[in-house]
Amino acid sequence: MYVVLVTYTAPLTEIDYALPDHVEWVAKQYDHNHLLASGRRDVHLGEVLIVRPMSRLKLDAMLAADPLALAHLAHYEVTEFAATRTCPELRMLNEAIPH
């Protein structure tokens, strides 16, 4: 599983222009069952994506297709972790529990 910190690297006017395409990209990631949660972090600083377990190569390809990445408007910091304790709603992602 991954936590991805998206940090905007361009003026907000450029970010705002690209956001509709980015929002569509995020929706597609939910449609493909890749994302568990997403949202803005601090006002206009960037976003947080919580991504289901997948190969790092697949994640990198997914992030590279984000319109913010394609337009060089954001930086992505990826932290991988193994969920070993979760709330009941995320039990299927708990890597310490055999499934």
Rank of each mutant, 00 (worst) to 15 (best):
P20W: 05
R41C: 11
E14H: 12
L63W: 03
P53Q: 11
H32W: 02
A10G: 12
E95P: 00
D60V: 00
M54R: 04
A74E: 08
P88C: 02
E47W: 12
H44L: 00
V4D: 02
V23R: 15
L63F: 11
S38A: 13
I15K: 02
L73Q: 05
M92R: 14
V4P: 01
L90S: 06
L93K: 00
E47I: 04
A10H: 02
L45R: 07
E24P: 04
M54K: 01
N33C: 00
P11W: 06
V48L: 08
R91G: 07
E24D: 12
M92H: 05
P88I: 04
E80Q: 15
D42A: 04
T9Y: 01
V6K: 11
L93F: 15
Y17N: 15
D66G: 14
F81C: 05
A71C: 13
H72D: 09
V48A: 04
R52K: 14
S55C: 06
D42S: 02
S55M: 06
T9H: 04
P88V: 01
I50Y: 10
P20Y: 05
T79P: 00
T79H: 14
L57T: 05
L45I: 11
V43I: 08
A74H: 08
Y17K: 15
T13A: 13
E95Y: 05
Y2M: 01
E47T: 02
L19C: 04
A27M: 13
M62G: 01
H22Y: 10
H44Q: 08
T79I: 13
P11F: 08
H32D: 12
I50R: 05
Y8P: 01
K28N: 13
E89V: 14
I15N: 04
M54S: 10
H72L: 12
L93H: 11
